[in-house]
Design a protein around this nucleic acid. Sequence first.
DNA 1: CAGTTTGTTCAAATTTTCTTGAACAGACGT
DNA 2: ACGTCTGTTCAAGAAAATTTGAACAAACTG
Lengths: 191, 191
Amino acid sequence: MPTAAAKQQDPNDSKPLWREAELRAADAMGRLMEFWGFRRHMGRLWTILYLSPDPMTTGDLAETLQMSSSAVSLSLGELVHWGAVRKTWRPGERKDFYQAESSVWKLLRRVYERRELNLIREAIDAFADAQRHLEEARGELGRAERRRVDYMHKRLSRLSALSKAGERLVRLLVAGRMINPADLQSAEEED
Amino acid sequence: MPTAAAKQQDPNDSKPLWREAELRAADAMGRLMEFWGFRRHMGRLWTILYLSPDPMTTGDLAETLQMSSSAVSLSLGELVHWGAVRKTWRPGERKDFYQAESSVWKLLRRVYERRELNLIREAIDAFADAQRHLEEARGELGRAERRRVDYMHKRLSRLSALSKAGERLVRLLVAGRMINPADLQSAEEED
DNA sequence: CAGTTTGTTCAAATTTTCTTGAACAGACGT
DNA sequence: ACGTCTGTTCAAGAAAATTTGAACAAACTG
């Protein structure tokens, strides 16, 4: 039975010496991207492209990362959708070529813009909704419950304030403007 | 066969009118926390505690959120570990009581500190390792491969610079100091 | 126009993660 | 010291996600 090592060392494969280093870097970036809410493969693919001087085909990528062509297609498509990878074209070649959009920062900005800002806004809405609910129900309550509801209302206001401060902060980040994290702190200190 | 609605309306359960609002807010926060890399339940639990004027027991929480006691125990333990929830004690009562640590900002800071900074540092190390690998291998390569390796080396330097800028940025955020996101941009512009 | 080559989509299968119930352990009151 | 109540841990089961191979579609070649 062939060992894992034997399987890795395909005799006809002129695997470059630096491939291992490349893969390790790609994996580190994959982990990072996973933290941002992407698939690990997306980070790996992007890195391989980023480190390559020339555009690559899906076949190259599949072989380098030992992925199935469908997995490559899926994650690569998502990268293109996020603007992290560009499809390029080569005269005389039938295949599509891909190259990394080199601005990581641009990519991160887009992530925060589309994913995080939306989430925060949804939360802000939910808090406001909850408050409205409380106000409507307040009339029908006894004294004890009314106190409890008032407490919740106040706390929800604080969560709202905090979320709005967060939203502002992310918007500034996306716009590349200076940020003062102390704003967040003060948003929950005032009571 | 009892419908879901019937199951929810336990006749003996004096479910307060505002419970629904509370749950909705809790869920919004759960989603947000999920984005930070936590379990949704952690956000939900924390929110219920945060909105409650009095400390609560695990039983209260399990009932409110319809969770099993083990699930409560698990997620609550993690919240305590992260410093987002405090165990409090009540004279004459045998149960443990829990209350939310009210500073969300403190919690977020801790997240960035422990989770994100570590990840970034690991990535920085991986990039440096990869570069070292390349340097070692460089001698044994032909001309074409050498050019390729040099390219990778340069790109890895850029990734390193970017990661370090990110690390700095997060550290400033954690310290509550002013942040200039333009640093990130410039980290990858210089070539 | 038929035959290749390349890329995408989809359902099935695998892997991973989450959840649960039961067993265990600790603390308290009698 | 025993029984009861509370909280935690763990292995089994359920749910969710990722991955894959195969079928399909599209674009080019001869």
